[in-house]
C-alpha cells in the first residue's frame, strides 16, 4: 500500500474544470461565512472546531465494504449539518479538506475546489434538506433522530459521489471511451455501501451528543422555532 490518499489527486480532472469548481467553492464558502456568522456565538465557535477535528479523525478510519479490496470512510456532511447547521457545517468540511490537502498531501491543492464542492457544498446541502424534511415528518424520538441522521448521511454520500462523476464528465483526463456510465455505476454502488457506514456512524454520534447535551445539536435547536404557529405564546393568546 503506497498511499493513504482518499481525495481527488492532481491530474484526475483537467485544470480549467478544477479552476471552475474552485470559483464555485470559494463563492459558496463566502456565502457560508456570511450566513454562518449568525449561528456562530461564543458557544458554537469552539463546538464547531471540535466537529471539524472529529470529522478529520473519523475520515482516517477506513472501514471495509461489500467487496474485498475496497474500503470507505466518513465524509461527514450530514454529521456536521446535524450538529452545527448547514452553513457552519460546510465550513467545517472545508477546513478539514484544506488541512488534508495542505498538510497531509491528501487531495491535490489544485483539486480542492472539486472536493469542497462535492463534500462541503453538495454533501452538506443534500443532508440538511433531508434533515429539515425528516425532522418535521418523523416522530420526535431518539429513533426519529437516528433515522434522520442515517438517511441524510446515506443519501448525501451517494449524491456527493455523483458530484464527482459530473466533474469527471466535464473534465476527466482519461479517455473512458464514452463509458462514463461505468464510472458512475462503480461510484454509486460503492458509495451506497459507504453511505450505510456513514449513516451508522452519523446516527450513533448524533444520538450520543443528543443524550449528553441535546442543546448542542443544531438540528434539534432549529426545530423548535420551525413551527411557531403551534407553540402557544407564554402569557396566553386571545
Amino acid at each position: 500500500m503506497e498511499t493513504l490518499a482518499m481525495h481527488i489527486s492532481n491530474g484526475i480532472i483537467n485544470g480549467p474544470v478544477a479552476a471552475l469548481f474552485a470559483v464555485i467553492a470559494l463563492a459558496a464558502m463566502a456565502l457560508a461565512v456570511q450566513r454562518g456568522r449568525q449561528d456562530l456565538d461564543d458557544r458554537l465557535a469552539p463546538m464547531a472546531g471540535l466537529v471539524a477535528a472529529f470529522i478529520f479523525a473519523v475520515q482516517m478510519l477506513n472501514f471495509p465494504i461489500f467487496t474485498a479490496g475496497v474500503s470507505g470512510h466518513l465524509l461527514g456532511g450530514a454529521l456536521a449539518a446535524m450538529l452545527v447547521g448547514p452553513w457552519v457545517g460546510a465550513l467545517c468540511l472545508a477546513v478539514v479538506l484544506v488541512v488534508q490537502a495542505l498538510v497531509f498531501g491528501d487531495g491535490g491543492v489544485a483539486m480542492l475546489g472539486l472536493s469542497i464542492t462535492n463534500m462541503a457544498v453538495i454533501g452538506v446541502a443534500v443532508a440538511y434538506l433531508l434533515i429539515a424534511l425528516l425532522l418535521r415528518v418523523l416522530p420526535r424520538t431518539v429513533a426519529g433522530l437516528a433515522v434522520t441522521a442515517f438517511v441524510a448521511a446515506l443519501v448525501s454520500v451517494v449524491v456527493a459521489a455523483l458530484g464527482f462523476v459530473l466533474q469527471y464528465w466535464l473534465g476527466g483526463t482519461a479517455d473512458l471511451g464514452g463509458n462514463l456510465a461505468g464510472l458512475a455505476g462503480t461510484m454509486a454502488v460503492s458509495h451506497l455501501f459507504i453511505g450505510i457506514g456513514e449513516g451508522l456512524i452519523t446516527a450513533t454520534t448524533v444520538v450520543t451528543v443528543a443524550k449528553v447535551r441535546p442543546d448542542l445539536v443544531y438540528a434539534l435547536r432549529a426545530r423548535r422555532p420551525a413551527t411557531p404557529a403551534t407553540v402557544p405564546t407564554v402569557g396566553g393568546v386571545r
Binding site: Q38, L40, G49, A52, F56, V88, C92, V95, V96, V103
Partner: peptide, 15 residues
C-alpha cells in the same frame, strides 16, 4: 491542528 484552525477561524468570525 484542525481544531485550532477551525476553532480559531470560527472564534474570529463569530457573532
Amino acid at each position: 491542528l484542525t481544531f485550532a484552525v477551525a476553532g480559531g477561524a470560527f472564534w474570529l468570525v463569530r457573532r
